[in-house]
Amino acid sequence: MRIVVLVKYVPDINAERKFADCRVVRDPSEGTLNELDENALEAALRIVEALPDDERETSEVVALTVAPPAGDVALRKAYQMGVDRGVRVSDEALADSDYFGTTTALAAAVRRLETEGPVDLVVTGMAALDGLGSVVPALLAADLGRPSLTFAKTVTVADGALTITRETDEAAETLTAPLPALLSVADTANTPRFPNFKLIMAARSKTIEEWSAADLGLDAATVGAAGARTATTQAAPRPEKPEVELVQDKGSGGRELAEYLIRNELV
């Protein structure tokens, strides 16, 4: 079993996130692995751990990211959790990619991994906490010509097929498809493992392979700002809210709340 897990380097949601010149500021001291990708890593590792011994020994879990060099933070975290290999695609030509440019680069990297041997599964988180678009998994599946089984709450791999259950806004569903396939997992799918000391130490010295756009044979016109079909033209912080009206409940707090709503025509 060979699994590629996509990981993203994102600004920490607990830090102050901002734009400069319409681009997201990616301060290396405040960047981190997208938390939702930990669920993807956990799902991939569990799939491999559930295999019979002989299959497990020949399995490989590869963490793949498209990021500037600071994105190694995300790959180190993936190594701490237990992946076998980390690959970073970095190129100035990829800056300001939209969903399609990002997907094109990811698909090219997966195809390069496929030249070494089949990739049975591509696994992703349900969203990245910076953009929250949730569409790259489905787009990547389309680029790779695989069925996409996204937003999984439960995951089963058996007899060469992937089966998931999911609960979306609209329905509870059970989906199944033969491998190779693409899987995205919801944050309810599992509780990511806490890395043990041995893996944390080992992760420090692991190799991170670096591939450029040229290594992947990417046409510069299809990625980055050149290939983008949308452009951010304005970015401004929202005005601060006025001081909160704070009431200590001394028996009439509920009444005061209701009166606030009535006064502001919210009822």
């Binding site: 809210k241 006025p242 909160v244 704070l246 509920g254 009444r255 709340l257 009535i262």
Partner: peptide, 25 residues
């Protein structure tokens, strides 16, 4: 920090009282 209006108090007291005033209104 991100509210317009806030009540420091027990929700089991505050919410039913607010609901009663709103229903009457």
């Amino acid at each position: 920090e991100i509210c317009d209006f806030a009540v420091v108090g027990d929700l089991s007291d505050v919410l039913p009282q607010a609901a009663e005033v709103i229903r009457a209104h």
